[in-house]
Nucleic acid binder design. Structure first.
Length: 279
DNA sequence: CGATCTACCTGATGGC
DNA sequence: TGCCATCAGGTAGATC
């Protein structure tokens, strides 16, 4: 599964290995994935012979500048895998897009739920305008630097349980159960605390934990566990699963309180936390 | 022992 | 606005 740290890892890899390359050939296996730019023939034609000039990440969207003057947007879904392949690698099941480069090699998108979208937008207008969901997306804690004042205002501006806040893409983009539970443990805050009731000290701890956990997850190259498989563009798993403190660890001793960690259902999904150290 | 079924996992979505 | 039922695909474990 791709969440925010994994999206950042993908951006770094593709910046090194794909930017500067020219598209020789385009394979589009699923019409829905490119439908925002028209049909497959139109999109393939618009991309063939075009060079990828620059890449930025906005939340879980990857945005390439093209030498055609357009931009290529890849809107990653949790179910998306991004792969750098040689041209000879055999096509994995659920491969939805293949971009083959004149310099050799492929960029492939794999998605068993067809959740990924790839489309072209005008390069002259701001990306927030050409891609409305980018304009309305939540904060990106990996954007350097996420403003502390924005964070505070957004958190206090809602009165919702902290876990709901963390997993709400319109407030903070790209987090799921794993990173949410880890952030809340790091912050010493319970999943069911109301965001509007945090005091200044708690708010600062919360902010610091969001930034720390997500940056650590990038540093350790993402989280690869059974319920949330993740492989980087080279097919390598991450290591952050070895640094998880609470997720999936109910019954084990809390690193902070030395009491057993607890697992509870919250809005029909599991939440892992330490009853003693998270208040 | 293999095929099939069931329950449950995940995040996204849309109705209330 | 926030909460929750439902959806879809995948999979683990049970059952035949």
């Amino acid at each position: 599964m791709i969440f925010l740290p994994e999206a950042e890892i993908v951006r770094r890899e593709l910046e090194r290995e794909v930017v500067g390359r020219k598209i020789k050939d385009v394979t589009l296996n699923v019409a829905k994935v490119v439908a925002r730019s028209g049909n497959r023939t139109v999109v393939a034609k618009a991309l063939t012979g075009v060079k990828l000039d620059a890449l930025v990440r906005v939340g879980t969207h990857l945005v390439f500048d093209l030498d055609s003057g357009q931009r290529l947007v890849i809107a990653l879904a949790p179910s998306t895998s991004v792969r750098r392949n040689t041209g000879r690698d055999k096509e994995e099941p659920s491969t939805v897009v293949i971009l083959a480069f004149t310099q050799g090699g492929h960029l492939r998108l794999i998605d068993n739920k067809n959740g990924v979208e790839m489309f072209l937008v005008d390069g002259d207008q701001p990306i927030e305008e050409t891609v409305p969901e980018i304009g309305s997306a939540g904060m990106d804690p990996l954007a350097a630097p996420m403003a502390w004042t924005d964070f505070g205002r957004k958190v206090l501006g809602h009165d919702v349980k902290l876990k709901s806040l963390l997993t709400d893409n319109s407030i903070i983009v790209g987090l799921g159960d794993i990173y949410s539970d880890e952030i809340l443990f790091e912050a010493g805050l319970r999943y069911d605390r109301l965001s509007g009731g945090l005091n200044t000290q708690e708010l600062r701890r919360f902010y610091r934990s969001v930034v720390t956990v997500l940056n650590d997850a990038v540093k350790y190259r993402g989280t690869s566990i059974e319920s949330s498989p993740w492989l980087d563009p080279h097919g390598e798993p991450g290591n952050y699963q070895d640094h998880l403190q609470v997720y999936g660890k109910h019954g084990q001793l809390s690193p902070r309180s030395r009491q057993p960690l607890v697992r509870t259902k919250y809005s029909s999904r599991w939440t892992y936390f330490c009853e003693q150290s998270q208040v």
